[in-house]
Design a protein around this nucleic acid. Structure first.
Length: 582
RNA sequence: GCCGCGUUCGUCUAGUGGUUCAGGACGCUGGCCUCUCACGCCGGUAACACGGGUUCGAAUCCCGUACGCGGUACCA
């Protein structure tokens, strides 16, 4: 049976979504200047007339059209706007540490929703059963709460469209997958990993895009049903056209065009019965009434799959807004390898949430009046998503430091700072934990602070030569290995940290005392200090790791940098000796 | 490799074809203030990736190239 989207001709969103004419200068009438660009998104509900993001490949064209259209009158809108509130969401995956990028996306989603009187949803995308954890989910709640970013609906507070955890919505996805299969938009696939692997290798050898070849697409449905009933392992794949291109509007980028031939027959339902991101995301966005999908540009390449899903279900598209990605100083996507990315780290390192949020608000964005210091409320009040800049902003700790300093000296009283200090670490709770460790080492009360001061310090101050010891290269290797070990470590307690070092003693063939020497320096800043493992626990995983990382950087500056081949070899060696039979 | 998205001082950015030999901020730097340091204040440094086009006029519009990033999973 022929399905409409398999037509060889270009698939395009329904014509009301996309202006058919190309944007060229010659086509733009002088007066009324840009009237023809006015075609509000069907589900857009905005406080001012808004144009279609439009056209032409250049973003400048799109933005110019946007801006000009903005000043045109509402009367020129030929398509009625669908009334109804704006709904945005963030859909983080609860794996690992809460990411600063999640707060970034949350901020813009919240601001957009609030600015337009809408709602902002937090949805947990835990469809990857292998990696998702409840602990990580809690950390996301905590991170957003710390940042002062509220959500209107979410797993913890409920709402009219729950549940908000995808692992609890399985029946919904089952039903929708069935609908797609029924409509011929998706199909069961029984190919095993071996076939897929050789297929991929062949395609790569022929310099083609690796893409499922549709082997199971035309299987007799009745036969397929029998095999499924017999319990044969299978997945459900999205049926993708072989020819033509997908054209979809992005609010900030104009039209995004991607040839269908480069889009894989994405798996929608895994063998374990769980949906993949693509399916769950589209179904949930629709069911939760999401009108504006504001997400990172890493998703652009899967847009066609999402479009196909909306189309397959007969749903109109939400408005897509792909934000730039936060970058490391070397311009790569922000990663913990090169930058602190865990929100917990910013908290533990003594940053103020309002400063962090303020700083994130100036990543790829400036307030219309150019203000650099602003509250969340001020940010929201003047928020204009069309001011977002597309070049990926480098997350610059130096500038965040300046901003954080300004908050400390300009917007808080000494008494308020004291409160913050208490809420941070300078409190009885921490002191009471440190005291038993220090007690035996005290001669006078005055000995305590020098001994425990490292628990409250930011940057440590110690001679790098001492950290390096007699064999700097070896020290660097130890730090690197310990860091890899500690990155995985959960829970992060004195006992588990001890376990890591004991493992290293065995594997590296050194005495604990010798191994630990550089770690005392890197973690506490002194050769002699409180017990290391307990200190690590008190400091927390984020700060401990960061200090080890800083130690590594100091060694690198001394010429003991681990990079290229050496690093690769070490990593392989580490994998073999440490992680192989875990 | 292929596909996509980008590209204004080192970094964050302003910039809606003429008012800009490009403005602000961080950083760095010179000076002032000052019991030190910091803060603050005054100054300096430094950019339209490149090449074609369109135009009387281009950072701004178009095309190409280069570079960067993202994607290319039964991860999200």
């Amino acid at each position: 049976m022929k399905t409409p989207h398999l037509d060889p001709c270009s698939w395009r969103p329904p014509s009301h979504l996309v202006q058919p004419q190309p944007c060229t200068r010659a086509l733009i009438p002088l007066r009324p200047r840009f009237g023809r660009f006015l075609a509000p998104h069907p589900i857009g509900h905005l406080s001012r007339p808004r144009p279609k993001p439009y056209l032409g490949s250049g973003c400048h064209a799109a933005r110019a059209a946007l801006r000009h259209a903005r000043i045109s009158s509402t009367k020129e809108c030929s398509i009625p706007m669908r009334p109804g509130p704006v709904v945005t969401r963030i859909a983080p995956s609860p794996t690992g540490d809460p990411h600063i990028g999640t707060v970034f996306m949350a901020l813009f989603n919240l601001a957009f929703a609030r600015r337009h009187g809408g709602r902002f949803i937090l949805r947990i995308e835990d469809t990857d059963q292998g990696r998702s954890t409840r602990e990580s989910e809690e950390a996301i709640f905590a991170a957003l709460t710390w940042a002062g970013i509220p959500w209107d609906e979410g797993p913890d507070k409920g709402g009219p469209h729950g549940p908000y955890r995808q692992s609890e919505r399985l029946p919904i996805y089952e039903e929708h997958v069935a609908r797609l299969v029924q409509a011929g938009r998706a199909y069961p696939c029984f190919c095993n990993a071996a076939r897929l692997k050789s297929l991929r290798e062949e395609q790569l050898a022929r310099k083609e895009d690796p893409r499922y070849d549709g082997h199971c697409r035309h299987l007799d449905p009745a036969l397929a049903a029998t095999r499924i009933a017999a319990g044969e392992a299978h997945v459900i794949r999205l049926s993708v056209p072989d020819e033509g291109e997908c054209v979809v509007p992005d609010r900030l980028r104009g039209e995004i065009r991607i040839a269908w031939s480069t889009v894989d027959h994405q798996i929608l339902r895994k063998t374990d019965g769980f949906p993949t991101y693509h399916l769950a995301n589209v179904v949930d966005d629709r069911l939760m009434g999401v009108t504006h999908v504001i997400r990172g540009e890493e998703w652009i390449s899967s847009l066609p799959k999402h479009v196909l899903l909306y189309e397959g279900f007969g749903w109109e598209l939400p408005e897509f807004i792909h934000m730039p990605l936060l970058r490391n100083p070397d311009k790569s996507k922000l990663s913990k390898r090169k930058n602190p990315t865990s929100v917990t780290w910013y908290r533990e390192a003594g940053y103020l949430p309002e400063a962090v949020v303020n700083y994130l608000g100036m990543m790829g964005y400036t307030l219309p009046d150019g203000r650099e210091m602003f509250t969340l409320e001020e940010f929201i009040a003047s928020f204009d998503i069309d001011r977002v800049v597309l070049g990926g902003p480098v997350f610059d700790l130096a500038k965040l430091n300046w901003l954080n300093g300004r908050y400390l000296r300009e917007s808080l009283s000494p008494a308020q700072i004291l409160e913050r200090l208490h809420a941070w670490r300078l409190n009885d709770e921490l002191l009471l934990k440190a005291l038993p460790l220090a007690q035996k080492r005290l001669t006078t009360l005055a000995d305590f602070m020098p001994m425990a001061g490292f628990l409250l310090r930011g940057a440590l101050d110690y001679p790098t030569a001492e950290l390096a010891g007699s064999d700097g290269a070896c020290t660097a290797r130890w730090l690197r290995i310990a860091l890899w070990e500690l990155e995985q470590l959960r829970p992060f307690t004195a006992a588990t940290v001890r376990g890591v070092f004991e493992g290293m003693v065995e594997k590296e063939g050194v005495a604990l005392r010798e191994l630990l020497a550089p770690f005392f320096l890197a973690v506490t800043g002194a050769k002699v200090s409180l017990p290391l493992f307990d200190s690590c626990e008190l400091l927390g995983a984020d700060v401990t790791r960061r200090r080890l990382h800083e130690g590594l950087e100091r060694l690198a500056a001394m010429g003991h940098e681990l990079k290229g081949k050496t690093l690769k070899a070490l990593e392989e060696d580490y994998r073999r000796r440490y992680t192989e039979n875990r």
